[in-house]
Design a protein around this nucleic acid. Structure first.
Lengths: 135, 135
DNA sequence: ATCATTGTACTAAGCGCTTAATACAATAGT
DNA sequence: ACTATTGTATTAAGCGCTTAGTACAATGAT
């Protein structure tokens, strides 16, 4: 299983983002052990050096702790994980609205597009109603 | 005025995206002339070669036409522009929902976050209501 | 015809990312 | 004590992006 990595951005960055997501989404539980650099590199289909770099960054971000010869663990500080999760979400929301704004879409239209996509993508229907106050 | 360009991704890619947005958002009208490679490069604070590469890509995308010694114009095919605008928006919406899903956010929460951000960012209030059918 | 402006092409250099190969350091397990 | 596993460091090479510098081609303007 080699991961989906494009060549447009540094691979180590993409790995950081992926692992970050898996951690804050609870896919990797707090305190759980992560695979070794070599194993993870094998799994991702990248060079160990590259995976090492990604791990170093994750540690710098406070999401991972390192123990020599034991390997790495997801941090047990759930607050840190939650904080990161919220920040990532916040960034996503802001960037999304910003970009849609740049494309010249009104709030109404954004809402419509979100509705349309939600309906297509999942069984759950989200009804979004806009209050026309001003523009 | 040098543009906001980060070093995480190729500069020419970022320039393509920026000009693409400006075109589909109508900031650069269909048929209007674009600055020369050299001038645009100067304005963006990049090497002419880099700007050249971005322009070449924009031409390949069908958003720009080239005339020797006259320079470049935004395409006059408004259909093409509209099509691109819709595709870019579609991608934004899909990616956004996908990423929020990866972060483990329910639709309800996404809606809440959007509401919160909308209210902060603009005077206009968007009221979003969800129908709880299933999950 | 001449000139300036435009797009385009080419080479060389530097830099960051990635890979490859190797080696060393620390420690849990035996 | 020994061994395997882990993280870590180092060097060299290749590749793509970017810059710099230069040159050529096409054409509108004069």
């Amino acid at each position: 299983m080699s991961w989906k990595l494009d060549s447009d951005r540094p691979i180590y960055t993409q790995i950081v983002e992926r692992l970050q997501i898996q951690i804050v989404a609870g896919e990797f539980a707090p305190g759980s052990r992560l695979k070794s650099v070599r194993d993870m590199a094998m799994e991702a289909g990248v060079n160990p050096n590259t995976m090492q770099r990604a791990f170093t960054e994750l540690e710098r971000l406070g999401l991972v702790t390192t123990n020599r010869s034991t390997g790495r663990q997801v941090t047990e500080e759930t607050e840190m994980i939650q904080k990161t999760r919220n920040e990532l979400a916040q960034t996503q929301v802001r960037d999304f609205l910003s970009r849609m704004g740049e494309l010249g879409f009104e709030k109404k239209e954004v809402v419509s597009l979100l509705n349309a996509e939600s309906k297509n993508a999942e069984s759950k229907t989200i009804e979004i109603k806009e209050e026309t106050e001003n523009d």
